[in-house]
């Protein structure tokens, strides 16, 4: 890598170390930016069938609901939706935390709690669907 020109060094607002790491202010590059859009498109595609599934369940008792939720196609659509939306909300909430919490320790704890919450909600929901699918 050639050294930047003197004129560039004057106008650039990046530190020399930051320029070498090339990851920007997030410390992790653009992977979250890309995944946020990936999961956004996934949930946008899945939302119509998910709304239809929820509408199908209105007015049914547990036995009727369990029968519908356990059907393979419906279970697969719901699991895909849960994975995409949990991932999406994990990234989204992390952005909110990083915007508003400036104490480093509290920020780390909040980011960690956010990860735990999203994984727990997703896993609990997926477990419930798999249990309904297996009919146990």
């Amino acid at each position: 890598m050639t050294a930047p020109k003197a004129s560039m060094q004057k106008t650039s607002m990046r530190t020399p170390l930051g320029r070498v790491r090339n990851l920007g202010a997030s410390h992790s590059g653009t992977s979250d930016f890309w995944r946020q859009r990936l999961t956004a498109v996934a949930t946008a595609l899945l939302i119509a069938p998910v709304v239809v599934i929820v509408l199908m369940l209105i007015g049914r008792n547990q036995a009727g609901a369990a029968q519908i939720l356990g059907a393979p196609l419906i279970a697969i659509i719901l699991i895909l939706f849960i994975i995409a939306s949990a991932w999406h909300m994990k990234i989204g909430m992390q952005v909110v935390i990083e915007d508003y919490i400036h104490n480093e320790k509290l920020k780390l704890a909040s980011v960690m709690a956010n990860n735990f919450f999203c994984v727990a909600v997703a896993l609990a929901s997926i477990y419930a669907i798999l249990k309904l699918s297996s009919g146990v």
Binding site: L69, S85, V121, A124, S125, Y127, A128, K131
Partner: peptide, 12 residues
């Protein structure tokens, strides 16, 4: 999503 999870767990 807590509501969604509660609903699915209840169904199961």
């Amino acid at each position: 999503t807590l509501l969604l999870a509660w609903w699915l767990i209840a169904a199961a």
